[in-house]
Design a protein around this nucleic acid. Structure first.
Length: 550
RNA sequence: GCGCCCAUAGCUCAGCUGGAUAGAGCAUCGGAUUUCUAAUCCGCAGGUCGCAGGUUCGAAUCCUGCUGGGCGUGCCA
């Protein structure tokens, strides 16, 4: 049950007034507080405290209110009845929306012929978690991996392969693009050749197409490997620049019908600047002067394709914030040309920086590869396990290591830059993924030892028990809020807060010890079960798995 | 130049509904288990919420200006 929503609506119905329900920072004040009296006081021309005294009896009539009192400038603090709390917490959670939507999600966006690097971490993890959140709420999603598989990098790679031969594995393949780009910097003829090959590949040159198909296989296998290791939901479609290429002509036709396309310096552009813009708003480039497809054309055509085939209510993108302007342009054109009616959103991530505030680089100055980061974390877990004299299998070690990386990434506000510190990834105390999993393992361990759990009732609850139950009742609101705000970090922060309360409870409230009476034991076991189930749901939304032991 | 984003404890971050004494983790220091997993728990200490104004009964939160940083600003994707 969404406790907050229930209490808030009940109070509003009772008072016939939309009041603001808050959770007091200091829990000693109560479980909830409302500023209704303070807000109403102004229009009523009354003193807030006097008004609070008038509405207090009405609130006390509500069946879930154990106690309501006036505090400070006119807050009304409410304490919930224990039996109500118990019934609410014992209910099956149901966060399903009453208005399910069709949502196309675009994240991942990997590049063919390049290793996945640290920059792909957020789009993968945050996009995947958002997808899981949307599904949890009952929406229908379709996830697209809009891969970079048709642009100039393809020409650069093919040019290299023509000269030096086909790579046999991903490691070799990944070296080609950087090498070829480096050469193009000082070799204009090489760059011209790459551009030419790109244009010819796009217009169907069979020789280039064959080479392309060959290294594409290596690249797709590499992507699958990473997806698997990150425990991401499989993409519903891996369809990128090339996949939408057949729809560019249709899209172009629509732009022409709306008289939006103009020619400029040999390129085809759409002017998107309006008189209201004081921001720089360059035109959207639909086709380059050398005749190649642009990424804007690909994204527009993707919107066209998705609208035609999926009829989505929402199309959402998760990429880094450097593409903010790009998506602004694309969205404007999509609306100007009436390509879609769907709500379009783009969530741009901040960068991962080093401790100097500059984009994160490895010690040798290179870009950190994603798999290297997972390996780093795995090694740290392994040595910690062996230091502690524990024996855990590889699967468990991988699960813990992955939790460390993913949770660290999910924890931060997606819009802000955050400092990426390898030491933090390999430190497992406090607010970390391993802490979350450890808590779940502890709770599972109690349940396993306890055997069957019978439902019970409770009217007396200790503070530790109450706080924990109330926290579990905040889960549905958190998921909804994470969805509304596209803020996956809310899930991670919620999970951490829940774990803190769970560990405090665990420490202070013995359950299976001999000196615990039956009623207390039954009550606490049920609390453990409720907490475990809630935590497991949060862990699942983050795409983590709970090990059997830690 | 112009635009967007960011600035909270030594460090990393919450505070996404404008509320009461601004919260965590790490690091430092001090405690707790012959006990359901110590990757845990409890405590001490640590803050002019970048600066200056404004709106409000009330501002870390909203507005304006400034400073500092990141990113972007038509043929890379």
């Amino acid at each position: 049950m969404n406790l907050y929503k229930y209490v808030s609506e009940s109070i509003n119905n009772k008072l016939g007034f939309i009041a603001n329900l808050e959770v007091p920072r200091n829990r000693a004040f109560g479980d909830f507080s409302t500023n209704a009296a303070m807000v109403m006081a102004k229009s009523a021309g009354k003193n807030p405290r006097e008004l609070a005294a008038e509405i207090l009896p009405q609130l006390q009539e509500l069946d879930f209110v154990a106690d309501a009192s006036i505090a400070g400038p006119g807050f009304i603090n409410i304490k919930l009845r224990n039996d109500f709390l118990w019934r609410a917490a014992s209910q099956q959670k149901n966060a399903k929306t009453t208005a399910p939507k069709k949502i196309d999600l675009d994240y991942g966006g990997y590049n063919v012929g390049k290793a996945l690097h640290i920059g792909h971490l957020r789009t993968s993890i945050v996009g995947d978690t958002f997808n899981r959140i949307a599904k949890y709420l009952g929406h229908t999603t379709k996830s697209y991996n809009h891969i970079g598989d048709w642009g100039r990098p393809m020409g650069l790679i093919i040019a290299w392969i023509l000269e030096y031969g086909m790579p046999t594995n991903a490691h070799e393949l990944n070296k080609i693009y950087p090498a070829s780009t480096e050469r193009a910097k000082n070799d204009d003829a090489w760059m011209a050749r790459a551009k030419e090959i790109t244009a010819e590949l796009q217009s169907g040159n069979p020789e280039y197409k064959q080479i392309y198909d060959d290294f594409m296989k290596i690249s797709l296998a590499q992507m699958d490997d990473v997806l698997h290791r990150l425990n991401l939901l499989p993409f519903d479609a891996t369809m990128g620049e090339r996949g939408v290429a057949p729809y560019v002509a249709d899209t172009q036709k629509i732009l022409e019908e709306h008289n939006l396309l103009t020619e400029s310096d040999g390129a085809m552009i759409v002017n998107v600047k309006t008189d209201n813009d004081n921001a720089p708003m360059p035109p959207l480039m639909f086709r380059t002067s050398s005749g190649t497809q642009t990424y804007a054309a690909a994204d527009l055509s993707a919107i066209y394709y998705r609208t035609k085939t999926d009829h989505p209510d929402i199309i959402g993108y998760f990429t880094d914030s450097r593409q903010n302007l790009h998506f602004q342009q694309v969205f404007r054109v999509a609306k100007m040309a009436e390509i879609t009616n769907a709500e379009l959103f783009h969530t741009g991530f901040g960068a991962l920086t080093g401790s100097d505030g500059k984009p994160f680089k490895t010690r040798d100055g290179g870009v950190a590869e994603l798999l290297d980061i997972l390996d780093l974390s795995t090694d740290a877990v392994r040595s910690r396990v062996s230091d502690a004299g524990k024996k855990l299998d590889d699967e468990t070690i991988s699960a813990i290591a992955l939790a460390a990386v993913k949770f660290n990434d999910l924890l931060h506000d997606v819009r802000a830059d955050y400092v990426f510190d390898p030491n933090q990834i390999t430190s497992f105390e406090g607010r970390t993924g391993p802490y979350i999993l450890y808590t779940a393992v502890r709770l599972n361990s109690v349940l396993k030892r306890a055997g069957d759990i019978k439902n019970t009732t409770a009217t007396e609850l200790t503070d530790d028990e109450r706080n924990l139950l109330i926290a579990t009742l905040d889960f549905e609101r958190t998921v909804q809020s994470a969805f509304d705000n596209r803020a996956t970090d809310m899930i991670a922060n919620y999970a951490y807060d829940l774990c803190q309360l769970a560990n405090t409870f665990y420490h202070n409230c013995p359950i299976l010890r001999d000196d615990v009476d039956d009623a207390t034991r039954a009550r606490r076991l049920q609390i453990v079960q409720i907490t475990r189930d809630t935590l497991a749901s949060a862990i699942d939304l983050m795409g983590l798995t709970i090990p059997n032991e830690m």
